[in-house]
């Protein structure tokens, strides 16, 4: 099953992946990372289609996509 994961270590919460996702299944986490950012997270993994749009747009190379 397709899956996207964000590494909170790299994420700066810019939101570009949220805007890029065609399925609208990425949001800011309620948690913050050690830099103080609300990092991005996928909250409906089952709807991910592994299109890589999030990976493509992420400026911090924080995203891994699996299929």
């Amino acid at each position: 099953m397709p899956k996207m994961t964000v590494d909170p270590y790299y994420c700066k919460g810019c939101g570009l992946c949220i805007a890029a996702c065609p399925k609208k299944i990425i949001r800011f986490s309620e948690n913050i990372n050690e830099k103080g950012y609300h990092y991005a997270e996928c909250y409906k993994q089952e709807e991910c289609i592994a299109c890589k749009m999030c990976y493509m747009t992420c400026p911090d190379v924080a995203i891994k996509v699996e299929k």
Binding site: Y9, Y10, K12, G13, C14, G15, L16, Y37, A50, K52, Y55, M56, T57, C58, P59, D60, V61, A62, I63, K64, V65, E66, K67
Partner: peptide, 24 residues
């Protein structure tokens, strides 16, 4: 894994501002 951080990047996080496209 169909997309991941390439080995040609170090593990050091970029020092750019959030959303800066230098990282892309």
């Amino acid at each position: 894994v169909i997309a991941r951080r390439p080995e040609t990047l170090t593990k050091t996080p970029f020092t750019y501002c959030p959303g800066c496209l230098h990282g892309v």
